[in-house]
Nucleic acid binder design. Structure first.
Lengths: 234, 234
DNA sequence: GTCTACCATATTGTTGACAATATTGTTTTC
DNA sequence: GAAAACAATATTGTCAACAATATGGTAGAC
């Protein structure tokens, strides 16, 4: 199992956007904070998470902490065993492959739906994000910035697909395999150029409403990111 | 939104099978019971679930109930709003379409993986289940039995794919749109015959390790079931 | 009659205490 | 010295009470 760069830019989408933003319930805030800590390597996969420990750290009682752990379990971020507590999920390599494949299959579907449901405004937003990606391609750009920008593009396409539920599934699935979805697959200019080409192709397919091609390409960006990440650590 | 037959045969997979079965924690039992109640129409989509009410019904305190609601929220069975409680999810029609498409995309992937990872034993198990399906095809068989058997076939294929995580995603996603995954799509002998043909084709594809065909067919059984269900209520 | 402000009630959010179970260390036995 | 039985500790599961917030109804102003 690989462990490389801290995650960033992947947020837990707990519920739809409210017109009037409500006070965030502490369980969700705690879940978010734990994720952030994992991202910044404050917690490692395999670590045991003790309820009282978390409760002390976040200055709440164990109740909200237990709810937070349920939230994280649902996203496969932690693993709960009855009477034995929570550990941060450590996926086996083949489970990671499956997670990437699943994310790809779902994102392919998102791209397909985006073809049918996009408006011109959606196209403009996607195009804008991709042109920003272009400026992050050269040899002096950071893999991290590039990666973050690809996440933004993905979300724009998700918006065009008008299916926040599906997009949440994609992000949840990605989260199961963070190390393969970090900047690891974009460490060389060549890799970034190839990724850029793929994203541009997706943009074209969505613009032309070519659902089949968009579906294939949506899967391909995931496969490529995985392959590149695997090479990077080989 | 449609509401037809009670659900059956769809279980919540909360965790892997333990070698030594542990006492089930009450939160999970409660979640299971609520699902059963929804299935038997004791609760309807849109219904409000009050914590104290559930606590009284199941003879526990509100703590475990709250955890159960988090479990159900994670599977999109209930919808939680801060300070406003839980309601049983009522999907809009287009959300149902997306859920079906997502389940199809994921099950296509499961079929693809099954092609690569299957053993002869897996093939035998799948074949056995499909031959049982064949006996449920004639005009005197119940749509319900037929439907239940298709679920069993799906699980056999899931086993062959060696990815319980993925299979859980498929079942969770299906759960989001129960009314379209009930026996509604198998109400005529003609529909059952067509479904049987598809499952047989999947069996052949997996036997011959033809991943592309298996993927397509895995998606197709979902699309067909949806189309048939839509016609049934039109 | 309708709207608004207010109050009573209902419901969710949080807490600390206690019970049940698991884990760890120690002692005992061979 | 190794293994098993036991005791001490740590950790999770559950509960009941309290606090914070939302809901629904009533009274009063216009």
């Amino acid at each position: 199992m690989l462990h490389a760069e801290p995650i960033e830019g992947i947020a837990i989408i707990t519920r739809e956007v409210q017109t009037v933003p409500r006070r965030r319930v502490s369980a969700e805030q705690i879940a978010l904070d734990v994720v952030t800590l994992i991202g910044s390597r404050g917690f490692q996969p395999g670590d045991r998470l003790r309820e009282q420990e978390l409760a002390d750290r976040f200055n709440v009682s164990r109740g909200p902490v237990r709810e937070a752990l349920r939230i994280l379990e649902a996203r496969s971020i932690v693993h709960l065993e009855p009477m034995r507590g929570a550990t941060i999920t450590r996926l086996k390599d083949d489970e990671v492959l499956d997670a990437v494949a699943a994310a790809g299959a779902l994102f392919g579907l998102v791209c397909r739906l985006a073809c049918e449901r996009r408006t011109n405004i959606d196209i403009a937003k996607i195009a804008e994000k991709i042109s920003q990606l272009e400026t992050l391609c050269d040899e002096y750009s950071s893999p991290r910035q590039f990666f973050t920008q690809t996440l933004r593009i993905g979300r724009s396409i998700g918006q065009a697909a008008r299916s926040p539920r599906l997009m949440r599934m994609v992000e949840d699935t990605r989260f199961g395999a963070p190390d393969y979805f970090g900047p690891l697959g974009f460490t060389s200019e060549k890799l970034r150029q190839e990724a850029l080409r793929n994203w541009k192709a997706i943009q074209t397919a969505i613009t032309e409403r070519d659902a089949t091609v968009a579906d294939d390409l949506g899967r391909k960006v995931h496969d490529n990111a995985l392959a590149a990440a695997l090479l990077a650590v080989a």
